[in-house]
């Protein structure tokens, strides 16, 4: 039933790059690894001092491992929840697992389109495409769009925006 609710009527959804999940997994793993290292250092330095309670020093590490596991479980699911559809008159973006959101943006309302890409995202070849209308509430950002697709999307949306131009 959920899937039914968050589809577009004309619905051909373009999924986003699986590499987004990889990138998020890597970032999560890095954080996890850092916590494990913190535990290791703490254990090496303080194990003698807190005799008997030394296992407590491994809590950050355990947390780090749990975080890593959770990120690798969550990221692909979150990735799959994202998608966009280019309907005849509107652009439709959906995303989120816990907080699901579907935004319909008419092409004519688009003021400008941003493509952003950090160093890791660029290395993996994807970026975030953000649509801006005169309303800040629109906030339609699509993470994990492959870079060439992102550029195509930006140009196409800009063209469509001009074609449908409806002013403010």
């Amino acid at each position: 039933m959920r899937e039914d609710l968050f589809t577009s009527p004309a619905g051909v959804w373009t999924p986003i790059s699986p590499r987004l999940a990889t990138a998020r997994g890597l970032v999560g793993s890095a954080c996890g690894l850092f916590l494990v290292l913190v535990s290791l250092v703490l254990w090496l330095q303080l194990a003698d001092l807190v005799d008997g309670w030394a296992w407590l020093l491994w809590l950050p590490g355990a947390l780090g491992l749990a975080l890593t596991a959770w990120v690798w479980w969550w990221a692909p699911r979150n990735r799959r929840s994202w998608g966009y559809a280019e309907d005849e008159d509107d652009f439709v973006v959906r995303g989120g697992i816990m907080f699901r959101r579907l935004v319909v943006v008419p092409y004519g309302r688009m003021q400008f389109v941003d493509v952003q890409s950090g160093p890791l995202a660029r290395a993996l070849g994807f970026g975030t495409v953000t649509l801006h209308t005169a309303s800040t509430a629109t906030a339609a950002a699509i993470p994990g769009v492959p870079l060439d697709e992102a550029t195509r999307l930006r140009d196409r949306l800009t063209d469509l925006g001009e074609g449908h131009g409806a002013g403010v």
Partner: peptide, 9 residues
């Protein structure tokens, strides 16, 4: 209308 949002927490 600028855009329309449908959401569920």
């Amino acid at each position: 209308v600028q855009s329309v949002e449908f959401s569920q927490g």
